[in-house]
Design a protein around this nucleic acid. Structure first.
Lengths: 206, 206
DNA sequence: TATGCTTTGTTATTGTATTAACAACATAAT
DNA sequence: ATTATGTTGTTAATACAATAACAAAGCATA
Protein backbone atom coordinates (compact mmCIF):
# COMPACT_ATOMS: atom_id res chain seq x y z
CA UNK A 1 0.00 0.00 0.00
CA UNK A 2 1.27 3.40 -0.94
CA UNK A 3 0.56 6.20 1.51
CA UNK A 4 -0.04 9.83 0.54
CA UNK A 5 3.08 11.96 0.79
CA UNK A 6 1.56 14.25 3.39
CA UNK A 7 0.63 11.32 5.57
CA UNK A 8 4.20 10.00 5.43
CA UNK A 9 5.46 13.42 6.54
CA UNK A 10 3.11 13.41 9.48
CA UNK A 11 3.94 9.83 10.45
CA UNK A 12 7.53 10.97 10.84
CA UNK A 13 6.37 13.72 13.17
CA UNK A 14 4.06 11.45 15.12
CA UNK A 15 6.96 9.11 15.70
CA UNK A 16 9.04 11.82 17.31
CA UNK A 17 6.28 12.88 19.65
CA UNK A 18 5.42 9.29 20.52
CA UNK A 19 9.01 8.52 21.37
CA UNK A 20 8.94 11.30 23.91
CA UNK A 21 5.74 9.88 25.35
CA UNK A 22 7.28 6.45 25.53
CA UNK A 23 10.31 7.84 27.34
CA UNK A 24 7.92 9.33 29.89
CA UNK A 25 6.19 5.94 30.28
CA UNK A 26 2.91 7.28 28.98
CA UNK A 27 0.85 4.34 27.78
CA UNK A 28 -1.85 6.14 25.81
CA UNK A 29 -2.27 9.32 23.80
CA UNK A 30 -5.37 11.10 22.46
CA UNK A 31 -5.59 12.21 18.87
CA UNK A 32 -6.15 15.79 20.00
CA UNK A 33 -2.96 15.78 22.07
CA UNK A 34 -0.89 14.53 19.17
CA UNK A 35 -2.59 17.03 16.91
CA UNK A 36 -2.14 20.10 19.05
CA UNK A 37 1.57 19.47 19.49
CA UNK A 38 2.05 19.34 15.73
CA UNK A 39 -0.28 22.09 14.54
CA UNK A 40 -2.71 19.55 13.12
CA UNK A 41 -6.32 18.66 13.68
CA UNK A 42 -7.40 15.54 15.57
CA UNK A 43 -9.23 14.35 12.47
CA UNK A 44 -6.05 14.45 10.43
CA UNK A 45 -4.34 12.31 13.03
CA UNK A 46 -7.12 9.75 13.18
CA UNK A 47 -7.38 9.62 9.41
CA UNK A 48 -3.65 9.00 9.06
CA UNK A 49 -3.70 6.26 11.68
CA UNK A 50 -6.73 4.74 10.01
CA UNK A 51 -4.71 4.37 6.80
CA UNK A 52 -2.25 2.30 8.84
CA UNK A 53 -5.14 0.25 10.22
CA UNK A 54 -4.25 1.36 13.72
CA UNK A 55 -7.18 1.44 16.06
CA UNK A 56 -7.52 3.32 19.31
CA UNK A 57 -9.46 2.68 22.44
CA UNK A 58 -12.51 4.34 23.78
CA UNK A 59 -11.69 7.05 26.28
CA UNK A 60 -8.02 6.21 26.58
CA UNK A 61 -6.88 6.98 23.05
CA UNK A 62 -4.14 5.22 21.13
CA UNK A 63 -1.61 2.83 22.61
CA UNK A 64 1.74 4.59 22.35
CA UNK A 65 3.87 1.49 21.89
CA UNK A 66 1.51 -0.08 19.37
CA UNK A 67 1.42 3.03 17.21
CA UNK A 68 5.17 3.41 17.40
CA UNK A 69 5.64 -0.18 16.32
CA UNK A 70 3.39 0.22 13.30
CA UNK A 71 5.02 3.49 12.26
CA UNK A 72 8.45 1.91 12.57
CA UNK A 73 7.29 -0.94 10.34
CA UNK A 74 6.06 1.57 7.80
CA UNK A 75 8.87 4.11 7.77
CA UNK A 76 12.51 3.23 7.79
CA UNK A 77 14.08 2.82 11.18
CA UNK A 78 16.41 5.60 12.40
CA UNK A 79 20.04 5.30 11.32
CA UNK A 80 19.41 2.78 8.57
CA UNK A 81 18.85 4.85 5.44
CA UNK A 82 22.22 5.51 3.81
CA UNK A 83 22.71 9.11 2.86
CA UNK A 84 25.51 11.30 1.58
CA UNK A 85 26.27 14.99 1.38
CA UNK A 86 27.70 16.48 -1.81
CA UNK A 87 29.61 19.61 -0.92
CA UNK A 88 31.45 20.00 2.36
CA UNK A 89 31.47 23.78 2.62
CA UNK A 90 30.17 25.50 5.73
CA UNK A 91 26.61 24.42 5.03
CA UNK A 92 27.51 20.81 4.32
CA UNK A 93 29.54 20.63 7.51
CA UNK A 94 26.78 22.15 9.59
CA UNK A 95 24.18 19.75 8.20
CA UNK A 96 26.46 16.77 8.72
CA UNK A 97 26.95 17.77 12.32
CA UNK A 98 23.23 18.17 12.89
CA UNK A 99 22.43 14.83 11.34
CA UNK A 100 25.20 12.72 12.77
CA UNK A 101 24.96 14.13 16.27
CA UNK A 102 21.27 13.27 16.45
CA UNK A 103 20.71 9.63 17.34
CA UNK A 104 17.05 9.89 16.32
CA UNK A 105 17.87 11.09 12.82
CA UNK A 106 16.90 8.58 10.17
CA UNK A 107 20.03 9.08 8.08
CA UNK A 108 23.32 7.23 8.31
CA UNK A 109 26.14 9.00 6.49
CA UNK A 110 29.06 6.74 5.62
CA UNK A 111 30.79 9.20 3.30
CA UNK A 112 30.64 12.70 1.87
CA UNK A 113 32.06 14.20 -1.30
CA UNK A 114 33.48 17.45 -2.61
CA UNK A 115 35.01 18.71 -5.83
CA UNK A 116 37.66 20.69 -4.00
CA UNK A 117 40.77 18.56 -3.38
CA UNK A 118 41.48 20.52 -0.21
CA UNK A 119 38.27 19.29 1.35
CA UNK A 120 38.37 15.82 -0.09
CA UNK A 121 40.59 13.52 1.97
CA UNK A 122 39.63 15.37 5.14
CA UNK A 123 37.32 14.03 7.81
CA UNK A 124 34.39 16.04 9.13
CA UNK A 125 32.63 14.97 12.30
CA UNK A 126 34.20 11.52 11.94
CA UNK A 127 32.91 11.05 8.41
CA UNK A 128 35.45 10.90 5.58
CA UNK A 129 35.13 13.29 2.65
CA UNK A 130 36.22 11.95 -0.72
CA UNK A 131 36.91 13.49 -4.08
CA UNK A 132 33.74 13.45 -6.13
CA UNK A 133 35.47 11.23 -8.65
CA UNK A 134 35.16 8.40 -6.14
CA UNK A 135 31.42 8.88 -5.73
CA UNK A 136 30.17 6.24 -8.19
CA UNK A 137 32.30 3.54 -6.64
CA UNK A 138 31.56 4.40 -3.00
CA UNK A 139 27.86 5.11 -3.45
CA UNK A 140 27.43 1.71 -5.05
CA UNK A 141 29.58 0.00 -2.44
CA UNK A 142 27.72 1.51 0.53
CA UNK A 143 24.33 1.28 -1.20
CA UNK A 144 23.66 4.97 -0.59
CA UNK A 145 20.24 6.05 -1.85
CA UNK A 146 19.85 9.67 -0.79
CA UNK A 147 22.03 12.70 -1.49
CA UNK A 148 21.97 16.13 0.11
CA UNK A 149 23.21 18.71 -2.38
CA UNK A 150 25.03 21.74 -1.01
CA UNK A 151 27.60 22.03 -3.74
CA UNK A 152 27.79 25.08 -5.94
CA UNK A 153 29.01 24.27 -9.39
CA UNK A 154 28.13 25.15 -12.97
CA UNK A 155 28.29 21.43 -13.74
CA UNK A 156 25.45 20.61 -11.38
CA UNK A 157 23.49 18.78 -14.07
CA UNK A 158 26.41 16.45 -14.75
CA UNK A 159 26.89 15.88 -11.03
CA UNK A 160 23.25 14.96 -10.55
CA UNK A 161 23.24 12.69 -13.61
CA UNK A 162 26.29 10.89 -12.31
CA UNK A 163 24.72 10.45 -8.87
CA UNK A 164 21.56 9.01 -10.36
CA UNK A 165 23.59 6.57 -12.41
CA UNK A 166 25.42 5.54 -9.25
CA UNK A 167 22.17 4.66 -7.52
CA UNK A 168 20.93 7.82 -5.79
CA UNK A 169 17.14 7.88 -5.86
CA UNK A 170 16.30 10.88 -3.71
CA UNK A 171 17.74 14.37 -3.35
CA UNK A 172 17.48 17.16 -0.84
CA UNK A 173 18.45 20.24 -2.78
CA UNK A 174 19.95 23.25 -1.02
CA UNK A 175 21.27 24.72 -4.26
CA UNK A 176 19.39 27.34 -6.21
CA UNK A 177 20.65 26.35 -9.61
CA UNK A 178 18.11 24.51 -11.74
CA UNK A 179 18.71 20.97 -12.92
CA UNK A 180 16.57 18.08 -14.02
CA UNK A 181 16.08 14.61 -12.60
CA UNK A 182 14.58 11.58 -14.37
CA UNK A 183 11.11 10.30 -13.57
CA UNK A 184 11.00 8.17 -10.45
CA UNK A 185 13.73 10.14 -8.69
CA UNK A 186 12.49 12.09 -5.70
CA UNK A 187 13.55 15.65 -5.08
CA UNK A 188 12.91 17.97 -2.19
CA UNK A 189 13.85 21.59 -2.66
CA UNK A 190 15.19 23.38 0.38
CA UNK A 191 15.38 26.68 -1.42
CA UNK A 192 15.70 29.57 0.98
CA UNK A 193 15.36 32.21 -1.69
CA UNK A 194 12.03 30.88 -2.87
CA UNK A 195 10.82 30.39 0.68
CA UNK A 196 11.87 33.90 1.64
CA UNK A 197 10.00 35.31 -1.36
CA UNK A 198 6.96 33.29 -0.42
CA UNK A 199 7.01 34.34 3.21
CA UNK A 200 7.59 37.96 2.21
CA UNK A 201 4.55 37.86 -0.03
CA UNK A 202 2.20 36.51 2.60
CA UNK A 203 3.69 38.51 5.43
CA UNK A 204 3.11 41.69 3.47
CA UNK A 205 -0.52 40.83 2.71
CA UNK A 206 -2.18 42.58 5.61
CA UNK B 1 -5.66 39.88 -5.24
CA UNK B 2 -4.24 36.99 -3.31
CA UNK B 3 -2.26 34.45 -5.29
CA UNK B 4 -2.13 30.71 -4.51
CA UNK B 5 0.91 29.74 -2.46
CA UNK B 6 2.23 27.43 -5.14
CA UNK B 7 2.03 30.17 -7.72
CA UNK B 8 4.01 32.51 -5.51
CA UNK B 9 6.72 29.87 -5.14
CA UNK B 10 6.94 29.50 -8.88
CA UNK B 11 7.00 33.23 -9.50
CA UNK B 12 10.11 33.38 -7.38
CA UNK B 13 11.69 30.71 -9.55
CA UNK B 14 10.59 32.36 -12.77
CA UNK B 15 12.22 35.55 -11.64
CA UNK B 16 15.58 33.88 -11.20
CA UNK B 17 15.50 32.29 -14.63
CA UNK B 18 14.29 35.50 -16.26
CA UNK B 19 17.09 37.49 -14.69
CA UNK B 20 19.57 35.18 -16.35
CA UNK B 21 17.77 35.67 -19.65
CA UNK B 22 17.87 39.42 -19.20
CA UNK B 23 21.57 39.31 -18.50
CA UNK B 24 22.01 37.46 -21.79
CA UNK B 25 19.96 40.15 -23.56
CA UNK B 26 17.27 37.69 -24.52
CA UNK B 27 14.11 39.65 -25.25
CA UNK B 28 11.54 36.86 -25.26
CA UNK B 29 11.00 33.47 -23.66
CA UNK B 30 8.55 30.65 -24.42
CA UNK B 31 6.48 29.07 -21.72
CA UNK B 32 7.97 25.69 -22.53
CA UNK B 33 11.53 26.96 -22.08
CA UNK B 34 10.73 28.42 -18.68
CA UNK B 35 8.92 25.24 -17.77
CA UNK B 36 11.59 22.76 -18.76
CA UNK B 37 14.23 24.60 -16.78
CA UNK B 38 12.13 24.39 -13.63
CA UNK B 39 10.64 20.90 -13.88
CA UNK B 40 7.21 22.34 -14.65
CA UNK B 41 4.76 22.09 -17.50
CA UNK B 42 4.21 24.93 -19.99
CA UNK B 43 0.56 25.06 -18.93
CA UNK B 44 1.52 25.72 -15.34
CA UNK B 45 3.68 28.62 -16.46
CA UNK B 46 0.98 30.16 -18.64
CA UNK B 47 -1.63 29.70 -15.96
CA UNK B 48 0.54 31.43 -13.37
CA UNK B 49 1.28 34.33 -15.70
CA UNK B 50 -2.40 34.55 -16.56
CA UNK B 51 -3.15 35.14 -12.88
CA UNK B 52 -0.80 38.13 -13.08
CA UNK B 53 -2.61 39.32 -16.22
CA UNK B 54 0.61 39.01 -18.16
CA UNK B 55 0.05 38.31 -21.81
CA UNK B 56 2.51 36.85 -24.25
CA UNK B 57 2.97 37.27 -27.95
CA UNK B 58 2.23 34.93 -30.72
CA UNK B 59 5.27 33.02 -31.90
CA UNK B 60 7.76 34.96 -29.80
CA UNK B 61 6.54 34.12 -26.32
CA UNK B 62 6.68 36.38 -23.29
CA UNK B 63 8.61 39.61 -23.07
CA UNK B 64 11.35 39.00 -20.52
CA UNK B 65 11.54 42.53 -19.16
CA UNK B 66 7.78 42.91 -18.94
CA UNK B 67 7.33 39.69 -17.02
CA UNK B 68 10.20 40.56 -14.71
CA UNK B 69 8.68 43.95 -14.00
CA UNK B 70 5.32 42.47 -13.11
CA UNK B 71 6.85 39.78 -10.89
CA UNK B 72 8.92 42.42 -9.13
CA UNK B 73 5.77 44.43 -8.51
CA UNK B 74 4.10 41.34 -7.07
CA UNK B 75 6.86 39.86 -4.96
CA UNK B 76 9.15 41.85 -2.78
CA UNK B 77 12.27 43.16 -4.40
CA UNK B 78 15.59 41.42 -3.54
CA UNK B 79 17.35 42.74 -0.44
CA UNK B 80 14.35 44.55 0.95
CA UNK B 81 12.61 42.06 3.22
CA UNK B 82 14.13 42.35 6.67
CA UNK B 83 15.03 39.01 8.17
CA UNK B 84 16.90 37.68 11.17
CA UNK B 85 18.49 34.45 12.26
CA UNK B 86 17.93 33.14 15.77
CA UNK B 87 20.85 30.91 16.69
CA UNK B 88 24.36 31.56 15.41
CA UNK B 89 25.77 28.05 15.68
CA UNK B 90 27.39 26.39 12.70
CA UNK B 91 24.11 26.16 10.84
CA UNK B 92 23.11 29.75 11.50
CA UNK B 93 26.50 30.97 10.36
CA UNK B 94 26.38 28.91 7.19
CA UNK B 95 22.91 30.15 6.31
CA UNK B 96 23.87 33.74 7.02
CA UNK B 97 26.84 33.42 4.70
CA UNK B 98 24.71 31.90 1.95
CA UNK B 99 22.08 34.59 2.20
CA UNK B 100 24.24 37.64 2.64
CA UNK B 101 26.76 36.67 -0.02
CA UNK B 102 24.02 36.30 -2.59
CA UNK B 103 23.01 39.67 -4.06
CA UNK B 104 19.88 38.11 -5.59
CA UNK B 105 18.61 36.82 -2.26
CA UNK B 106 15.42 38.53 -1.16
CA UNK B 107 16.47 38.82 2.48
CA UNK B 108 18.32 41.63 4.17
CA UNK B 109 19.72 40.66 7.55
CA UNK B 110 20.48 43.61 9.82
CA UNK B 111 21.01 41.58 12.99
CA UNK B 112 21.12 38.07 14.39
CA UNK B 113 20.57 36.74 17.88
CA UNK B 114 21.79 34.00 20.18
CA UNK B 115 21.21 32.90 23.75
CA UNK B 116 24.88 32.12 24.29
CA UNK B 117 26.76 35.20 25.56
CA UNK B 118 29.91 33.96 23.82
CA UNK B 119 28.26 34.29 20.45
CA UNK B 120 26.27 37.40 21.18
CA UNK B 121 28.40 40.53 20.75
CA UNK B 122 30.34 38.87 17.95
CA UNK B 123 29.99 39.71 14.29
CA UNK B 124 29.44 37.04 11.65
CA UNK B 125 29.88 37.87 7.99
CA UNK B 126 29.63 41.57 8.84
CA UNK B 127 26.34 41.16 10.67
CA UNK B 128 26.26 41.77 14.41
CA UNK B 129 24.95 39.07 16.72
CA UNK B 130 23.13 40.24 19.83
CA UNK B 131 21.95 38.63 23.01
CA UNK B 132 18.42 37.40 22.55
CA UNK B 133 17.33 39.73 25.30
CA UNK B 134 17.78 42.58 22.86
CA UNK B 135 15.58 40.97 20.20
CA UNK B 136 12.29 42.76 20.96
CA UNK B 137 13.90 46.16 20.82
CA UNK B 138 15.97 45.57 17.69
CA UNK B 139 13.33 43.65 15.75
CA UNK B 140 10.92 46.50 16.27
CA UNK B 141 13.52 49.12 15.46
CA UNK B 142 14.60 47.46 12.19
CA UNK B 143 11.05 46.37 11.32
CA UNK B 144 12.15 42.77 10.88
CA UNK B 145 9.30 40.51 9.80
CA UNK B 146 10.88 37.11 9.17
CA UNK B 147 12.95 34.88 11.45
CA UNK B 148 15.02 31.85 10.61
CA UNK B 149 15.14 29.52 13.61
CA UNK B 150 18.27 27.42 14.09
CA UNK B 151 18.44 27.64 17.83
CA UNK B 152 18.15 24.60 20.01
CA UNK B 153 16.53 25.32 23.30
CA UNK B 154 13.93 23.78 25.57
CA UNK B 155 12.36 27.23 25.81
CA UNK B 156 11.59 27.35 22.11
CA UNK B 157 7.91 28.12 22.69
CA UNK B 158 8.78 31.16 24.80
CA UNK B 159 11.31 32.29 22.19
CA UNK B 160 8.75 32.04 19.40
CA UNK B 161 6.08 33.81 21.45
CA UNK B 162 8.45 36.64 22.18
CA UNK B 163 9.39 36.96 18.52
CA UNK B 164 5.76 37.11 17.45
CA UNK B 165 5.11 39.81 20.02
CA UNK B 166 8.07 41.75 18.67
CA UNK B 167 6.60 41.74 15.17
CA UNK B 168 7.86 38.60 13.44
CA UNK B 169 5.17 37.30 11.10
CA UNK B 170 6.94 34.49 9.27
CA UNK B 171 9.30 31.71 10.34
CA UNK B 172 11.63 29.32 8.59
CA UNK B 173 12.07 26.51 11.05
CA UNK B 174 15.20 24.38 11.04
CA UNK B 175 14.54 23.02 14.52
CA UNK B 176 12.83 19.74 15.12
CA UNK B 177 11.21 20.66 18.39
CA UNK B 178 7.49 21.33 18.18
CA UNK B 179 6.02 24.69 19.03
CA UNK B 180 2.88 26.57 18.15
CA UNK B 181 2.30 29.84 16.34
CA UNK B 182 -0.84 31.96 16.37
CA UNK B 183 -3.17 32.16 13.38
CA UNK B 184 -1.94 34.48 10.70
CA UNK B 185 1.72 33.74 11.34
CA UNK B 186 3.39 31.86 8.50
CA UNK B 187 5.69 28.95 9.13
CA UNK B 188 7.82 26.92 6.78
CA UNK B 189 9.36 23.78 8.19
CA UNK B 190 12.82 22.90 6.96
CA UNK B 191 12.88 19.66 8.85
CA UNK B 192 15.57 17.32 7.59
CA UNK B 193 14.46 14.41 9.73
CA UNK B 194 10.96 14.45 8.34
CA UNK B 195 12.23 14.94 4.81
CA UNK B 196 14.71 12.09 5.18
CA UNK B 197 11.95 9.82 6.46
CA UNK B 198 9.75 10.83 3.56
CA UNK B 199 12.45 10.29 0.95
CA UNK B 200 13.38 6.98 2.53
CA UNK B 201 9.82 5.81 2.29
CA UNK B 202 9.39 6.62 -1.38
CA UNK B 203 12.89 5.58 -2.36
CA UNK B 204 12.27 2.17 -0.81
CA UNK B 205 8.97 1.71 -2.65
CA UNK B 206 10.22 -0.12 -5.70
C1' DT C 1 -7.45 32.83 -50.24
C1' DA C 2 -6.94 28.74 -48.03
C1' DT C 3 -4.33 25.65 -45.20
C1' DG C 4 -1.28 24.52 -41.71
C1' DC C 5 1.67 25.58 -37.93
C1' DT C 6 2.97 27.27 -33.45
C1' DT C 7 2.12 29.25 -29.30
C1' DT C 8 -0.89 31.59 -26.16
C1' DG C 9 -5.11 31.82 -23.11
C1' DT C 10 -9.01 29.66 -20.87
C1' DT C 11 -12.14 26.29 -19.35
C1' DA C 12 -13.11 21.60 -17.88
C1' DT C 13 -11.56 17.57 -15.63
C1' DT C 14 -9.13 14.96 -12.58
C1' DG C 15 -6.43 14.23 -8.55
C1' DT C 16 -4.94 15.15 -3.92
C1' DA C 17 -5.53 16.99 0.71
C1' DT C 18 -8.21 19.04 4.22
C1' DT C 19 -12.29 19.79 6.74
C1' DA C 20 -17.01 18.81 8.16
C1' DA C 21 -20.42 15.81 9.74
C1' DC C 22 -21.88 12.21 12.16
C1' DA C 23 -22.49 7.28 13.54
C1' DA C 24 -20.64 4.00 16.84
C1' DC C 25 -19.06 2.83 21.10
C1' DA C 26 -18.34 2.37 26.00
C1' DT C 27 -18.47 4.25 30.25
C1' DA C 28 -20.26 7.52 33.89
C1' DA C 29 -23.84 9.92 36.05
C1' DT C 30 -28.61 10.33 37.46
C1' DA D 1 -32.91 2.15 32.74
C1' DT D 2 -31.89 6.35 30.64
C1' DT D 3 -29.30 10.13 29.47
C1' DA D 4 -25.07 12.55 28.94
C1' DT D 5 -20.33 12.55 27.72
C1' DG D 6 -16.00 11.95 25.34
C1' DT D 7 -13.56 9.67 21.96
C1' DT D 8 -12.84 6.90 17.92
C1' DG D 9 -13.70 5.61 12.98
C1' DT D 10 -15.71 6.58 8.54
C1' DT D 11 -18.01 8.82 4.91
C1' DA D 12 -19.25 13.08 2.62
C1' DA D 13 -18.19 17.67 1.24
C1' DT D 14 -15.14 21.18 0.19
C1' DA D 15 -10.93 23.37 -1.18
C1' DC D 16 -6.77 23.52 -3.57
C1' DA D 17 -3.57 22.13 -7.29
C1' DA D 18 -2.21 19.89 -11.50
C1' DT D 19 -3.40 18.23 -15.90
C1' DA D 20 -6.01 17.79 -20.09
C1' DA D 21 -8.36 19.62 -23.77
C1' DC D 22 -9.06 22.82 -26.95
C1' DA D 23 -10.30 27.45 -28.88
C1' DA D 24 -8.06 31.68 -30.52
C1' DA D 25 -4.64 34.29 -32.71
C1' DG D 26 -1.64 35.39 -36.28
C1' DC D 27 1.87 34.54 -39.35
C1' DA D 28 3.99 31.49 -43.19
C1' DT D 29 3.45 29.01 -47.17
C1' DA D 30 1.45 27.37 -51.24
Amino acid sequence: MRLPAKTVERLSQYRRVLQKYEDLDELYIFSHDLASMLRLTPVQVRRDLMLLKITGHYRSGYNVKAVLRTINETLSIPKTQKTTIIGMGELGQALLKNISSNPACPALIPATFDLDPNRASKTYHNVPCYDFIKAPELITKHDIRIAILTINSPEIQEIVDSLVLSGIRGFINFIGGPFRVPDGIYLKDYDMRTTLDELSYFVSQM
